[in-house]
């Protein structure tokens, strides 16, 4: 009985510490490497996926040449429209992308924003300032 009560006390204290620790000693907000974006989350990624699919559908005989030409033109245009855009997104770790790209602090919580400047729109990997192609996935990130 006594042992059980002690065990209960220990368990309770441990759980309380687990939950309250971030409140008692908040860790300073350091920029964290965010996981790269899924292609499906970016306009360029979506357009590239659609292009691949169209290509494959033609190869397996699902799309006629006319439909292929029309769809390919449309999604190529969509992909090209995103080509020159190097993202300068700023992102709060808890509130996600901040619409004000010039902001340095999150409008919701005031914590510092992580700059994703020079991140590839297709895969999210950081792109060096002089690179024309993304080192992560190889898509062209800057125009001529």
């Amino acid at each position: 009985m006594l042992i059980e009560a002690i065990a209960a006390g220990v368990v309770g204290a441990a759980l309380l510490w687990l939950v309250l620790q971030p409140l008692v000693s908040p860790s300073p907000l350091a920029p964290v490497d965010l996981d790269p974006l899924d292609p499906e989350e970016t306009p360029r990624g979506l357009a590239l996926i659609a292009l691949k699919e169209i290509e494959f559908d033609r190869a397996t005989g699902k799309l006629s040449d006319d439909d292929y030409a029309e769809l390919n033109a449309r999604y190529s245009a969509a992909a090209i429209a995103t080509l020159d855009a190097v993202s300068t997104t700023v992102r709060c770790l808890t509130h996600g992308v901040c619409p004000e790209s010039a902001a340095r602090f999150c409008p919701h919580c005031g914590s510092g924003l992580v700059t994703e400047a020079d991140a590839c729109v297709a895969c999210g990997v950081a792109v060096p300032a002089d690179a024309m192609f993304c080192p992560g996935c190889g898509v062209r990130v800057r125009g001529e």
Partner: peptide, 27 residues
């Protein structure tokens, strides 16, 4: 293991599995 475009450090052509020809762009 995610969709095809995500694997880092490889050219898009290699991982996409087949070339994606963009209408009006020649590389």
């Amino acid at each position: 293991g995610g969709p095809q475009l995500r694997t880092p450090r490889r050219r898009v052509v290699a991982q996409a599995g087949y070339a994606v020809p963009l209408a009006g762009v020649t590389e």
